[in-house]
Design a protein around this nucleic acid. Structure first.
Length: 851
RNA sequence: GCCCGGAUGGUGGAACUGGUAGACACGCAGGACUUAAAAUCCUGUGACCAUUGCGGUCGUGCGGGUUCAAGUCCCGCUCCGGGUACCA
């Protein structure tokens, strides 16, 4: 017992890693008498680089939380897996011919080893890999359900497409209120008269997963399209290659049908304000009106969207996006050359160039005129790239007195400006404020802006030239990629129309190809696969799904990872419900975190999940920067590898040090020097257990322990791990000082530190004579009675400046405290014979004397 | 431009709902142990003045304000980080 051994972290950590693995210590059962708690990390893409010290930060925090919750009596689900489809493995395959599955498997092995080294309490039996057929079968299945569903605005949920077909057969579109690509109307007879091809074509306008010609972000370098959130500053997020706009036939998901629910749900979840704000802006809901303008000498109407229909009388011109389909139709002969030139120029310029020239005003007059619906005046129609095709209707009524961009355009091209709101000065700039009254506005004159908006909308609706409308910035998501390493679409084509495979044909396995490149005819890589056809010989879709497909529902698969009959059993989903705590990076704000909410709401509509939001609480861990404060990257050569540190100090030291660096959510630079302090601390902790005795603990030790229990418990609940490490250091310093060797104190200490430093805690626990893992113990309750002190050292200040301290009994009343303080020698010195003007006594806080 | 954060010693960071600013570490300096080094332990460490002792003045990015009392609250700036970008 008295034999002293050093802290041999290498042996200790090896021993417990093996123990946990052999005994399946962290296996989570899908039913329990204990309350459930689901802690999830954003699963990693297994890159060839391996982990650096920044990656485990969130995993350490979630692991501490998981282990803590177990000690608090919860049945904890804490799984890990891999987001295994993705571009880097495919790029590597293109370069080397190596099948991406092989590269990916190798990378996963490496990740797994690194993760195991850090002692995480994952239930490894639940590991998932999105690239495995057993997993992507269900990704394909969910896609198929989206394809087979439409969004019913009446019930505000997704419903089977058969119901829509039935309604069409019975009463055409008259009874249907759906989210659709475009407003179409037909009768039951017209529907029934449609050919199969026409019917399918029509249904695509309603399906939640649909094929459509759309402007997409095409990346020639990657040979694929990208979603809006995969493009940053006109370059691809992965690889940094230029991206251009191109019209292509693609799969899209009708996420816009869920815009309002995605917005409303933000109020129900415990996510950071910043993150919810980002999603809110991304959805970009704005209220206004749409109205149709006639075009002089033409049957065509141009529809515009505006948030300020009240300023209609200030509309002195109209602008179409250069890509607007009407441009060609309305353009006059004499303007054709100039207009075509401008359109060409816009097409050629990349997104990036367009953004760089934001401030430059450019545009061309089409030679056509719209007719003002109330004044009947002629309004010239221009094109300019400051109007975007993708937003609203791709056309605006320009009100230069009320919109700064319109004002700049009008000023540049010498177009008249009419003020329509009092206190505007059109010679200086636009008045975008929403106060003032209407002027120069016919029947709106004298109205305040909100009244004017209501009045004009009523009038538009009465005249049937417009209506109130809500617009969203959110676009339907392009869901297909012309790549190899992803989920194949469970879709075949007949007569050029897409049909879903039977559910019994899932998974549709990714076929082998000779090369991971597009075909000679420009088809996606799957075009190289032999026999890529159905049993009936019909061609299968050549696209694959984007990286975020598998990650949009993975949290459900962990609940029941091996299930061959469902994405997870109903029992498992009902038991585990949604994620209680989700930890990951903020960079997924408008991508993954929006899609996973979308898919969850869809699965809710299908009755598969009983909740509307996937993650109740979300915490974004900050980034760990290189020692110089820069992002860690291979090219900068400042990557710190956790394996080296584990070798030198052990995983427990690394875990605690990463937490000690600072608040979880902040970004902070890495400084390897500081790790010594934590290492010394663990050595000190180890020494405390050298000569444990079954003796009665003294008051001091009890106070040290109980204040630490209380502090650490509160800190974990607040995710303030850095301060709990400090608390442990203080506690161990105090116990060492007091030469505490009381078994009862050291037992509780081992338990409360075990979430942070699990290996050493298990070893000490065993030294104390226990035979079962410390994870099965119970978090001790602190007792207030050990925290109460008989005296308090009051800081006494004069005019707010602390002059001396006085130790007084906590039992004293405010009056007694005042008397004691004023009688003190130093008080007399500071009063200098004067009577105090006022004395403030805050019991157990402070005394302040105003002189 | 707009929307969010943030700014505290040489460094990372503490400070609960306004109540002892700088906890806990790193670094640095001095000391003990040692033939020596490592490890360990002890002491000091915001700045300035005083140092014989007591002590004093200033201090949380800058300028104002509220209060007995402000790192914390209010008003006006500066700088840094993140998001977003012609969104009608």
């Amino acid at each position: 017992m008295s034999k002293r051994m050093g802290y041999d972290f290498i042996e200790i950590e090896k021993k417990w890693r093996k123990y946990w693995s052999v005994n399946n210590t962290f296996r989570a059962e899908n039913k329990s008498t204990k309350p459930k708690f689901y802690v999830l990390d954003m699963f990693p893409y297994p890159s060839g680089q391996g982990l650096h010290v920044g990656h485990p930060l969130g995993y350490i925090a979630s692991d501490i939380y998981s282990r803590y919750k177990r000690l608090k009596g919860f049945n904890v689900l804490h799984p890990m897996g891999y987001d295994a489809f993705g571009l880097p493995a495919e790029q590597y395959a293109i370069e080397t011919g190596q099948h991406p599955a092989i590269t990916t498997d190798g990378n996963i092995e490496r990740y797994r080893k690194q993760l195991e080294l850090l002692g995480f309490s994952f239930d490894w039996e639940r590991e998932v890999r999105t690239c495995e057929p057993g997993y992507y079968k269900w990704t394909q299945w969910i896609f198929m359900q989206l394809f087979k569903s439409w969004y019913n605005k009446k019930t505000d949920k997704a419903e089977p497409i058969e119901a829509l077909v039935k309604s069409f057969s019975k009463s055409g579109t008259s009874e249907v209120e759906a989210h659709s690509s475009e407003a179409i109307e037909f009768t039951a007879d017209e529907w029934l008269a449609k050919s199969e091809h026409e019917k399918q074509e029509t249904l695509l306008h309603y399906r939640l997963a649909y094929l459509s010609e759309a402007f997409v972000n095409w990346c020639p370098e990657l040979g694929t399209v990208l979603a809006n959130e995969e493009v940053k500053d006109g370059l691809s997020e992965r690889g940094g290659f230029p991206v251009e706009r191109r019209m292509m036939k693609q799969w899209l998901l009708r996420i816009t049908a869920y815009a309002d629910r995605l917005l409303a749900g933000l109020n129900e979840i415990e996510w950071s304000d910043a993150l919810r704000e980002m999603q809110k802006n991304w959805i970009g809901k704005s209220k206004g009106a749409s109205m149709r303008f006639s075009v002089e000498g033409s049957e065509e109407k141009i529809e515009v969207f505006t948030t300020r229909p009240d300023t209609i009388f200030g509309a002195t011109f109209m602008v179409l996006a250069p890509e607007h389909e009407m441009v060609e139709k309305i353009c006059s002969e004499d303007r054709k050359e100039a207009v075509d030139g401008y359109v060409e120029q816009t097409k050629k310029r990349s997104e990036r160039e367009r953004m760089a020239e934001v401030k430059q005003v450019s545009g061309e007059f089409t030679g056509a005129f719209a007719i003002h619906p109330f004044s009947s005046e002629k309004i010239p129609i221009w094109i300019s790239d400051y109007v975007l095709v993708g937003y609203g209707t791709g056309a605006i009524m320009a009100v230069p007195s009320g919109d700064q961009r319109d004002w700049e355009f009008a000023t540049h091209f010498d177009i008249p400006i009419v003020a329509v709101i009092s206190n505007s000065d059109p010679s200086k700039g636009a008045n975008e404020d929403k106060d003032g009254v209407m002027i120069n506005s016919d029947f709106l004159n004298g109205l305040k802006i909100p009244e004017a908006i209501n009045t004009i909308i009523d009038r538009l609706e009465k005249d049937q030239i417009g209506e109130a409308r809500t617009n969203y910035k959110l676009r339907d998501s392009v869901f297909s990629r012309q790549r190899y390493w992803g989920e194949p679409f469970p879709i075949y084509y007949k007569d050029g129309m897409p049909y879903a495979l039977g559910e019994n044909q899932l998974p549709l396995k990714l076929p082998d190809v000779d090369k991971y490149l597009p075909t000679e005819t420009g088809d996606a890589p799957l075009g190289r696969a032999k026999n890529w056809i159905t049993e009936d010989g019909l061609p299968l879709d050549l696209n694959t799904m984007p990286g975020w497909a598998g990650s949009s529902w993975y949290y459900l698969r962990y609940m029941d990872p091996g299930n061959p009959d469902a994405l997870a059993s109903k029992e498992a989903i009902d038991y585990w419900q949604n994620v209680d705590l989700y930890i990951g990076g903020a960079e997924h704000a408008t991508g993954h975190l929006l899609y996973v909410r979308f898919w969850t709401k869809f699965l809710y509509d299908l009755g598969i999940v009983p909740f509307n939001e996937p993650m109740k609480k979300l915490v974004n861990q900050g980034m760990i920067l290189g020692p110089g404060g820069e992002k860690m990257s291979k090219s900068k050569g400042n990557v710190i590898n956790p394996d080296d540190l584990v070798l030198k100090y052990g995983a427990d030291t690394l875990r605690m040090y990463e937490m000690f660096l600072g608040p979880l959510e902040d970004s902070k630079p890495w400084d390897t020097h500081g790790i010594e302090g934590v290492f010394k601390f663990l050595n000190k902790l180890w020494k405390l257990y050298d000569d444990v005795e079954d003796s009665e603990p003294d008051q001091e030790a009890l106070t040290a322990l109980h204040k630490t229990i209380k502090k650490v418990e509160g800190d974990i609940e607040n995710m303030s791990f850095n301060t709990s490490i400090s608390a442990f250091m203080i506690c161990v310093n105090e116990l060492s000082q007091a030469k505490c060797n009381s078994k009862s104190i050291l037992t509780d200490l081992a338990i409360i530190i075990s979430p942070f430093a699990p290996h050493i805690a298990e070893e000490l626990w065993e030294k104390l004579g226990h035979t079962e893992s410390i994870s099965f113990s119970t978090y001790p309750d602190y007792d207030e009675k050990y925290l109460q002190r008989a005296t308090y050292e009051y800081p006494v200040s004069f005019n707010g400046k602390v002059r001396f301290k006085i130790e007084l009994s906590v039992e004293l009343s405010a009056a007694e405290i005042e008397r004691e303080v004023l009688e003190h020698e130093t008080s007399k010195k500071w009063l200098d014979g004067n009577a105090p003007k006022r004395v403030i006594v805050v019991p157990q806080r402070i005394v302040n004397i105003v002189v």
